[in-house]
């Protein structure tokens, strides 16, 4: 699906817990998510830290949409958003 939407000229970011599968199946921008059960969050964190954690993932996805890629590329929120204040 990501590839088809991208082909129509709309950039796509896939947030995935199983990001290696997204990469090998050809999704252009893949953002590293947490787990299948909670892709954009971590229930073991406090509510405040969980919000920050989720925001880093979402912000990484938005940043990736503004990045030109030539092939399947992994964006890691912990790297992209290191030190980000949200």
């Amino acid at each position: 699906m990501a590839k088809e939407i991208e082909r129509a000229g709309i950039p796509v970011a896939v947030i995935s817990a199983l990001y290696s599968l997204a990469l090998t199946t050809g999704a252009p921008r893949v953002v590293r998510g947490a787990r299948i059960e909670h892709v954009c969050g971590n229930p073991r964190l406090s509510a405040e830290k969980d919000r920050d954690y989720g925001m880093r993932i979402i912000m990484t996805a938005l940043k990736s949409l503004q990045t030109n890629v030539t092939g399947p590329t992994l964006f890691d929120p912990e790297v992209e958003m290191a030190g980000m204040a949200v």
Binding site: L18, S20, R32, R35, E37
Partner: peptide, 8 residues
Amino acid sequence: WSAQFEKD
């Protein structure tokens, strides 16, 4: 397993 690192 439900996370990439666990599968790896």
